[in-house]
Write a protein that binds this DNA or RNA. Sequence first.
DNA 1: GTCTATATATCGATAGAC
DNA 2: GTCTATCGATATATAGAC
Lengths: 195, 195
Amino acid sequence: MARTQGSRAEITGPLVRDAALRLFARHGYAAVSMRQIAAAVGVQAGALYAYTPDKQALLADLLREHMELLLAAWSDTPAEPPLVRLERFVRFHIAYSLDHSDSVFLSYMELRNLSSENRALIGSLRRRYEDDLTGILQAGAASGAMRLADPRLAAMALIAMLTGVINWFREDGRLDRAALADHYWALARGAVGAG
Amino acid sequence: MARTQGSRAEITGPLVRDAALRLFARHGYAAVSMRQIAAAVGVQAGALYAYTPDKQALLADLLREHMELLLAAWSDTPAEPPLVRLERFVRFHIAYSLDHSDSVFLSYMELRNLSSENRALIGSLRRRYEDDLTGILQAGAASGAMRLADPRLAAMALIAMLTGVINWFREDGRLDRAALADHYWALARGAVGAG
DNA sequence: GTCTATATATCGATAGAC
DNA sequence: GTCTATCGATATATAGAC
């Protein structure tokens, strides 16, 4: 494929997304200008429009991609006992959230800056994830392995509890990731009545 | 709600704060203009500067006031058993969060748009609240009423779990507030090993 | 205290050269 | 694909009249 002068599309594209993700997560979507993103990448603002039709599509693509990667990375093991499945979910969710804290933070904060169609799309992807956890909890309640009055509410509560780790955990703090996950799993197991 | 000239400071001040809180919470601080706030109040943009030196002070005041009201509304009962104190905390936190969801949402969304001094101030107020819960959990662990490997982590986890209710609860949904609080208390009690 | 008017800056997005 | 240059809109904040 012919290359025009100064073309570095194969590296600029990902750089634009990375810079936008980091800046949006840190300062908020509305507070970040296209010029700031361009400066972080090392191009002029006009060049960004070779990679996105507009600023909002850039945000929507980041959020959609995050939810798709999250769903692709999570795989349930329905044949195993509910408590085993729940432990896998807890450890997966913590690790994934810490590994992608910018995306996780952004996807909780900036839904409101999406168009209604984009918001509905991201919302449906998120609901699939919540439904997966709800299913595990329902199975646990049905089998007697868990004591849960409301699996749906418990799923929302557990996801909020686990996701919150990105707001306070520091890699150089007093806890390492392994201890962190163990502690959260103990809390989750107790919450579902399987302590 | 256009208005010609006339002084109505005694009602305009609170209206400015109310409008700013609602708009900031709904659209994000950076996405809301002073003109939008003025329009919601029914004055011209320039009139807002009789009530705040600038836009950021408006945000900082809202967040500081929220934390001070939260701390004033919460009162522990240290003489009572730890589990009783924890139940009071859980029910208080849910009720207060639902009653002030705009403030709660804003205070964990827009810290990043504060100056470092204002951010430190709000952070210290928040830490006092987290410390209160941590103290309850430490007392519970010490007395044997709770089984907790890490009271501080558990406090952060519980606050995140409880606060998350504002992201999904709807007053006209299948659950009323009383059932909601009961369910969350059951989850919290189990999480701290007192199920 | 609120108005109108405006200074000054920056925004998102586009056009045309290379 | 990236640059320079720029359009039109809008931002925060201020000045002076009433």
